[in-house]
Write a protein that binds this DNA or RNA. Structure first.
Lengths: 140, 140
DNA sequence: GTGGTTGCAAACCCTTTGCACGGCA
DNA sequence: TGCCGTGCAAAGGGTTTGCAACCAC
C-alpha cells in the first residue's frame, strides 16, 4: 500500500466512517484533481478508476466528507459545487469570467486576521472560520 | 416621484440601460428586501407590486444588474442565488445551519486589508475586490 | 422606426431521493 | 449477522433559453 493510500485510509477511518473502495477512490479524486474540482470532474476521474461507481454515490459521499470536515465546499455563486481537499487556512483568488479559482496562502495575512478578530469580537457572533474571497484577474 | 425612485432611476440609467417599469420594481425589491434576498424572494416581492412581471424577466434582469455592477451576487455554496444591493465594501457573517447571512462593516478591517495587499502584491494577479467570509454561529 | 426587453413555457442540468441489494465491521 | 453504504433511476427544483410581441429611446 502506498503512502498516499494510507493517508486516505486514515482520513476516512479517523472520522469513524466505514472504509470502502468507493470512498477511497472518491477522496483520492479530490486530492489528485487538486484545483477545486466540480462534482462532475470527480465523477469523470472516478470512472477512469472504477466505472461501476455510481454518480449518486459520489454525490452522497462528497457530502459525507464535507460533513465530517475531511474536505470542504468552495463558496461559489453559480449552480455548480466545487470541493476543496485543503483543510489548512487559506484563501481563494477568483476570476469571474474564466471560473478559475486559485489558492492563496499567506501566514502573515492569517495572523493579521486572527489577531484582528481576537481584538474585535463581533457582538452576538462567534467566529469559527475566516476566509478571504479575492476577486480580480490573472495576468500572464 | 419619490427620492427613492429617483435613486433607482439613476442607478439604471447611469449604466446606459433602458429604464423600464420591470427594472425599477426589481431593483426596488433588492433594496427593500435588504437581507440578501433569493431570486424567489424577489419574485414574490415583485408580484405584490405587479403580478404581470414574469419570472424569466426577473432572472434575466437580476443578471443584467450584476453584470452592470448595480448589485452583486453573494458567494454561497448551495444551489440558490442571493443578491446584495450594498455596493460599498463589506463582509458577510455566515451561519451554516440556518442559512442566515448578515453584513459586517468595519472600516479598520477594510483599511487593514487594503494596506496589506498594497504592500503584498500577488504575483500574476490583479486584485479588484476583497471580501471576507466569516463563518460561525449567532448567539442570542 | 428599431434594437433592446419582456412574457411565456419548455428545456436544462445539477442535485436529491427512495428503495432494494450488497458488503464492511 | 446487523447496519451502513451503494447502485439505479426517477423525481425535484432552481435557472436558462428561444422566440414572438412589445416598447423605451
Amino acid at each position: 500500500m502506498k503512502d498516499k493510500d494510507i493517508n486516505i485510509t486514515n482520513k476516512i477511518r479517523d472520522k469513524g466512517l466505514k472504509l470502502t473502495t468507493q470512498r477511497m477512490i472518491i477522496l483520492e479524486a479530490v486530492y489528485d484533481l487538486g484545483n477545486h474540482p466540480t462534482t462532475d470532474e470527480v465523477v469523470r476521474y472516478v470512472r477512469t478508476k472504477n466505472p461501476a461507481i455510481s454518480q449518486g454515490t459520489i454525490y452522497k459521499t462528497l457530502e459525507i466528507f464535507v460533513k465530517n470536515k475531511i474536505i470542504s465546499k468552495v463558496e461559489k455563486a453559480g449552480g455548480v459545487f466545487r470541493y476543496d481537499g485543503v483543510t489548512q487556512m487559506h484563501h481563494h483568488l477568483f476570476e469571474e469570467e474564466s471560473e478559475r479559482i486559485d489558492d492563496y496562502y499567506n501566514e502573515e495575512l492569517n495572523d493579521l486576521l486572527i489577531d484582528f478578530f481576537d481584538k474585535n469580537k463581533i457582538p452576538g457572533f462567534q467566529v469559527h472560520h475566516i476566509k478571504l474571497n479575492i476577486k480580480g484577474e490573472f495576468k500572464n
